[in-house]
Amino acid sequence: MAMLTYIEAINEGLRDEMRLDPTVFLLGEDIGAYGGAFKATKGLLEEFGADRVIDTVLAEGAIIGAATGSALAGLKPVAEMQFSDFVSNGFNQLVNVTAKYHYRNFIPVPMVVRLPSGGGIRGGPFHSANTEAWFFHTPGLKLVAPSTPYDAKGLIRAAIREPNPVLYFEYKYLYRHIKSEVPDGDYEVPIGAADIKRTGSDITVITYGTGVHWSLEAAETLSREGVEVEVLDLRTLMPFDRKAVLSSVEKTGKVLIVHEANLTGGVGAELSAFIGAEAFRHLDAPVRRLASPDTPVPYAPPLEDAFLPNAQKTAEALRSLAAY
């Protein structure tokens, strides 16, 4: 066991898989000697050499395509988008080439794309995006979004071992803000399995990524007010853990969905429709959603603070739902 930050856990997960499997390699912009814009790949060039930690040209379409091609050739690439925002430059590759490959050709594509996501770092409209909804709607891609160092390491390992393309959404705000115990040995967090981060009997919060931390803080506040909140961390967005969602909803009868990505057409919309269709008779209130508004992510601190959900907004939403 070691106390690791979220980004150290990603780094360690990458390193452990690279030690175990010589076909695993990394590619991306500035990931070698520089160690990545956020240092997620720090020290890996020194250990594994330039053939396994590859600095590429600045061209996301070529990076994602090269990952796809090398995966088809039997390697296990992990590509880094410097910021999640920049995946738009490789969008065609992901949605038309990578995602459709197995369906069209019955050939597995074992690749991972890491996407440093989210706001709260004063990054403005082009360095703060949460892009999961674009890909949530694309059949053929698996999506994971860890919220803790333990899950970050366990999910990067599972993503690398997964024979299908995985988009790994990691949260810049969490990189150095949280620290926790992470086992040294070989473990993985299975893709498709949600995790109850806090048990409660009155309201279920379904969330992922940074939203887990707002929800846990809000749950403590509500507990002092006599409302027990269950926090269900999806961990995998696609395919999400239908069983875990239903069993928590059946228990509490009230649901708040929290995500940082903007509201309309987000992951929460699908979850809400799913719960409405599958658990209608267990609901004691309408499913509520807390998300960012439908605007780009603004830059100035008061604007970004107004834009982002947080623990206070989550607590308010929970109070309103508790009173329903």
């Binding site: 070529a62 990076i63 395509g65 796809t68 590759q93």
Partner: peptide, 8 residues
């Protein structure tokens, strides 16, 4: 880009 990946 996929051809590049095979080449890589």
């Amino acid at each position: 880009p996929v051809a590049c990946g095979i080449g890589l």
